Simulated assay, not measured.
Amino acid sequence: MSECYEYIPHRLLHRRVRDIASGIEGVLMAVINENVSDTGIERWMELAYIRNASGREFTTAIANVHPAYDQPRTAVGRRQDRST
Rank of each mutant, 00 (worst) to 15 (best):
P72G: 03
A61P: 03
T60V: 09
N33G: 02
S54N: 08
E25K: 14
Y7C: 01
H66C: 02
Q71R: 08
R51E: 06
T59N: 05
M45C: 09
N64R: 00
T59E: 05
R15N: 12
S54T: 03
L12E: 00
D38E: 08
T84K: 12
V27H: 01
Y69Q: 05
F58E: 03
Y7K: 06
Y69K: 08
C4R: 15
A63E: 12
D19E: 01
R78C: 04
A30W: 13
R56C: 09
Y7V: 02
I24Q: 12
S37A: 11
P72D: 04
V31P: 02
R79A: 05
S83G: 11
G77F: 03
I20Y: 14
R56Q: 11
I24H: 15
A30M: 08
T60L: 03
A68H: 15
R56V: 08
C4H: 14
A53Y: 14
E3A: 15
R78E: 11
Y7A: 03
D19A: 01
Q71F: 02
E6S: 10
A75C: 05
P9M: 07
I24N: 10
A48S: 12
R79D: 04
R79M: 11
V65M: 09
H66N: 04
R73I: 02
D38W: 04
A68C: 01
R51I: 05
A75F: 14
Y69E: 05
N35C: 02
S22V: 00
D38H: 06
I8C: 08
W44G: 09
A63F: 15
P9Q: 13
W44Q: 08
Y5G: 10
T60A: 07
G55V: 06
D19H: 00
G77M: 06
Q80I: 12
A30G: 03
I8V: 15
V27S: 06
S22L: 00
A48L: 01
V76T: 08
N33P: 01
E42L: 04
E57L: 03
L28H: 09
M1A: 12
D81I: 06
I41N: 08
E34P: 01
R11G: 13
V76C: 04
R18E: 09
T74V: 06
L28V: 00
R18A: 06
V31S: 09
D19I: 00
I24K: 14
N64F: 12
A68W: 09
I32G: 05
P72N: 04
N33R: 13
A53T: 03
L12P: 00
N64C: 10
A30Q: 10
H10W: 10
I24S: 10
L12Y: 03
R51G: 02
A61Y: 15
Y69D: 06
